[in-house]
Computed example of a mutant assay.
Amino acid sequence: MPRIVDHDERRRQIAEALLTVAAREGHENVSSRAVAKELGVATGSLWHYFDGFDDVVRAAAAEVTRRTDTRIADATAGLRGLPRLHALMREVLPIDERTRTEAHVVVGFWGRIATLESTPDAGAPTLATWQDSIRSSLEEAVADGALRAETPQDAVMALLRSITYGQQVVEVTEPQPASAHLAVLEGILAPWRA
């Protein structure tokens, strides 16, 4: 009887193998051969699940987003306002070993993802998937009186999005202590605190 394989789970395993190789050896050493070796399979077996290596890269980028979304959901459960916003940002900013490693992997993806043809399910790591949570957190912070009523929420949200990308690049090019990354966050919020 043929073995039944969960197609989606196998795709995720392949994407995770790419992320493991990228984190351990750097993006310059990521190849279909390296990913297959990480999984302990023949390179050709990857193509039962993907049309090409670009599709594996897209899946790995989507996996980074999925992992981060899961962490954010866990970290923000039961929180609202500024505590919710801080918990969310702590899962994205490079402030611990996991998020620092992730920053190196994510920044390495950006150039490659930018050159790929766009697809409806291209899951480039992006703060866009968390935008609603950030917006809600800011609205709650204003409603709770933690931020002033005149807080320009759209502008603050745009700045938060920018520092998410920016601090990841800073971490890759000039590693900083967690306090420096968090100070940038506080610098954005401080003028609007009630």
Rank of each mutant, 00 (worst) to 15 (best):
M1S: 15
M1Y: 01
M1V: 08
I4L: 09
V5N: 11
V5L: 06
D6V: 07
H7T: 14
H7V: 13
E9H: 05
R10Y: 08
Q13C: 13
A15L: 03
E16Y: 00
E16R: 10
E16I: 11
A17K: 02
A17N: 09
L19Q: 07
A23R: 09
R24H: 05
E25C: 10
H27T: 11
H27A: 14
H27E: 09
R33H: 09
A34C: 14
V35A: 12
K37D: 15
K37W: 00
E38A: 14
E38S: 11
E38C: 10
V41I: 15
A42K: 10
T43G: 15
T43V: 09
S45K: 05
F50K: 00
D51H: 09
G52M: 02
V56M: 01
A62W: 00
V64A: 05
R66N: 11
R67C: 13
T68D: 13
T70R: 06
T70N: 09
I72C: 14
A73C: 04
A73P: 13
A73L: 09
D74R: 08
A75C: 13
T76G: 09
G78Y: 04
L79E: 06
R80G: 14
L82T: 03
P83T: 02
L85P: 07
H86L: 07
M89N: 09
E91M: 06
V92L: 15
L93Q: 04
P94G: 13
D96A: 07
D96W: 01
E97P: 03
E97L: 06
E97H: 07
R98H: 12
T99A: 11
R100H: 03
V106T: 14
V107R: 07
V107F: 09
G111F: 00
I113H: 08
T115S: 13
E117Q: 08
S118C: 13
T119E: 14
T119A: 12
T119V: 10
A122T: 11
P125N: 07
P125L: 00
P125H: 01
T126F: 03
L127K: 01
Q131T: 14
D132E: 07
S133I: 09
I134H: 03
R135C: 08
S136Q: 12
E139H: 06
E140N: 14
V142F: 02
A143D: 05
G145S: 12
R148D: 08
E150R: 05
T151L: 00
T151A: 10
P152K: 02
A155V: 07
A155R: 07
M157Y: 00
M157S: 14
I163K: 01
T164V: 04
G166M: 04
Q167Y: 03
Q168R: 13
V169S: 02
V170I: 04
V170Q: 07
E171T: 02
V172F: 05
L182E: 11
L182C: 10
E186Y: 03
E186K: 06
E186M: 06
G187L: 01
I188F: 06
L189D: 03
A190E: 12
P191Y: 06
R193A: 10
A194Y: 00
A194G: 15
